[in-house]
């Protein structure tokens, strides 16, 4: 396993473009969160400090940081599709196989890399959230700090699932740009199907079905936190109440998709003549 990871890391880290993209996808969310946590003086008129709003309180901070950081996953998605696209365009996939890598090992080396970077990203976000939280949070009891750390698990699963989808599209169309276009098409398709079901039956059923779709199920892992922040501000407004928690069934759906995408990538490669 380490050998396969090591192989892929050499391919990625010696490539300048992917090195920059990896850097951006990890460091950018890190800095955005860090910057938002410091006190910003807007031209001397007033000071903007998000910490004052209570958004950096435990346990809501886990929700907030993972939600924002996951918006940056697109940068690494480019890396994932290009690491497949490049293997095809340089024909190095063929050479790798001739040199004695099995098709299974090839897919696994890509998947391990995805897991590796998702893990690093999760650890980084976890660490920075903990630091900011400890600095700002009004509650510092251990039991409150570790409450809702399952958002970190959700974040990790979300990244692995999304990148596995990219891996599959990369294998399917062999070209990075087209693979990214496919992602967009899938996104539109999910909404079209959602619309069709709403039209034929009702909104609630459509949403229930849509929650099983790949992109929506990944998005659903970490619901948007704005409504929750509003909820804490106006606790008496009951129409704001919604279910924001991470549910195990949501995680299982995404894990199923992940397994399916990795398996399909392998099947595609196995059937294909290079």
């Amino acid at each position: 396993m380490l050998r396969l990871l090591n192989l892929e890391l050499q391919k990625l880290l010696l490539n300048r473009t992917s090195k920059i993209l990896i850097f951006v996808s990890f460091v950018l969310p890190f800095f955005v969160i860090l910057l938002s946590s410091i006190k910003i003086n807007v031209f001397g008129f007033f000071t903007l400090e998000l910490g004052e709003l209570g958004v950096f309180n435990f346990p809501i901070i886990w929700h907030l940081t993972t939600f924002f950081a996951s918006q940056f996953k697109f940068f690494f998605a480019i890396v994932v599709v290009s690491m497949i696209g490049n293997e095809y365009s340089n024909k190095t996939l063929k050479q790798n196989l001739i040199d004695g890598l099995s098709k299974k090992e090839f897919i696994l080396s890509k998947f391990y890399t995805i897991v590796f970077f998702s893990l690093i990203s999760t650890l980084l976000i976890g660490l920075i959230s903990l630091c900011i939280g400890l600095y700002y949070s009004s509650y510092n009891e251990f039991s409150i700090i570790i409450r809702e750390t399952n958002f970190l698990v959700a974040y990790f699963v979300k990244l692995v699932g999304f990148f596995s989808l990219c891996l599959f599209f990369g294998m399917l169309v062999k070209r990075s740009a087209f693979a990214l276009a496919f992602l967009f098409i899938l996104y539109i398709l999910e909404w079209i199907i959602f619309g069709l079901i709403t039209w034929q039956s009702d909104h609630i059923l459509a949403e229930k079905i849509q929650n099983f779709f790949p992109l929506k199920s990944m998005y659903k892992l970490i619901d948007q936190p704005f409504q929750r922040i509003a909820m804490t501000k106006f606790p008496d407004k009951t129409e704001l109440v919604y279910d924001y928690a991470v549910h195990w069934n949501e995680i299982i759906i995404v894990l199923c998709w992940t397994a399916l995408f990795v398996f399909l990538s392998y099947r595609l490669l196995k059937k294909r003549d290079l």
């Binding site: 050499q10 391919k11 890598l101």
Partner: peptide, 19 residues
């Protein structure tokens, strides 16, 4: 077929890792 952005030495190192 090799990785164009790697040097000859790095490419051969990769082959060594595979083998």
């Amino acid at each position: 077929n090799f990785y164009p952005y790697m040097t000859a030495f790095q490419n051969l190192k990769l082959v060594c890792k595979i083998k």
